[in-house]
Simulated scan of single mutants.
Amino acid sequence: MTVRIDELDRKILSQLQDDASQSLDEIARRVGSSKTPVWNRIRKLKDAGVIGRQTVILDPEALGLEACFFVLVRTSEHEADWQKTFLATLQARPEVLEAHRLAGDIDYILKVRVPNARAYDAFYQALISEVKIHNVTALLSMEEIKSTTLLPL
């Protein structure tokens, strides 16, 4: 279900996407409103599921996670039990930052963050020992050109 969002809601969401640690007073000042209406709108947007959990963005390289791999997975298995096991395996692996089921020749794409190629190999070995996979292709990102969590509003 789509939630009706007006221009003030968009301004508030833009401020929160930019820096969710801002005070209500600061957000209200920046969007040209007062604190109570801003609080009510934020609560409404949370209740509607527009705003999910709030978190911080960490620098992976500062934490020693210098290698980013995009992993293309092809499988010949499409039964519910296999999918359940595969998804549980992905959920249990903190290295997997994103996982998408695709249309086309590739069934899934994973975004995996690890310290180095040796750590990726350990991830890969663990993955194929837990789930039967037809083909895995790993692509090492040489340079991150753009990465954002900001949705276009």
Results as ranks from 00 to 15, higher is better:
R4N: 13
L127P: 13
V38S: 07
A99P: 13
R29W: 15
T89D: 10
N40W: 03
E143S: 00
F70C: 08
A122V: 06
S14Y: 08
D9T: 05
V38H: 05
L97I: 11
G52L: 14
Q17L: 06
S33H: 04
T55H: 14
N116F: 04
L65I: 04
L13Y: 02
A117C: 03
Q91E: 12
Y124V: 01
T148W: 01
P94L: 08
G52A: 09
K44Y: 00
I27L: 02
D59Q: 14
R101Q: 14
F70G: 08
V31H: 03
A117G: 11
K44F: 00
I42E: 03
A80T: 13
S76M: 09
A99L: 13
A62I: 07
D19T: 02
L153Q: 09
D25L: 12
I109P: 02
R29M: 15
Y120D: 02
Q83D: 06
R113I: 10
L16Q: 00
E95W: 01
S76G: 10
I57K: 05
R74D: 15
D47E: 11
A138T: 08
G49F: 04
T55M: 15
T149E: 00
G49T: 07
A20W: 06
K84Y: 07
R113Q: 09
A62S: 09
G104P: 08
R74W: 15
W39A: 13
L16K: 00
Q91C: 04
L110S: 07
L8G: 03
V38C: 04
P152G: 00
E79L: 00
I57N: 04
L151I: 08
D121C: 01
S129R: 03
H134Y: 13
S76F: 06
T89F: 10
N135L: 08
G64V: 14
R53E: 12
E79P: 00
L110C: 12
K11Y: 05
R113L: 14
T85R: 15
V73M: 03
R53W: 11
L13K: 01
E7H: 10
V136Y: 05
L24S: 05
R74T: 15
S129A: 08
A117V: 07
L63Y: 09
S141N: 04
A88D: 04
T75G: 06
G104T: 07
E26P: 01
L45Y: 04
A67V: 12
F123S: 11
R41G: 07
A80F: 11
D121P: 00
N135V: 09
D81L: 10
I57G: 05
D105N: 14
M142E: 01
E144V: 06
I27K: 01
T2F: 07
Q54R: 11
L65E: 03
G64M: 11
W39G: 01
D25H: 13
R93P: 12
S76N: 11
E79M: 00
V56E: 08
T2K: 10
A99H: 15
V3L: 06
R101K: 13
A92H: 14
R113H: 13
A99G: 14
I51G: 15
D6R: 02
F69C: 14
V56Y: 07
P60T: 04
S23L: 02
M1F: 10
K111Y: 03
I57D: 02
V136M: 11
A117R: 09
R43T: 07
V112D: 05
A103V: 07
H78D: 11
A138I: 06
Y124M: 02
R4S: 15
L63D: 02
V71Q: 01
D6Q: 01
E26V: 09
S34Y: 13
V114N: 09
F70V: 14
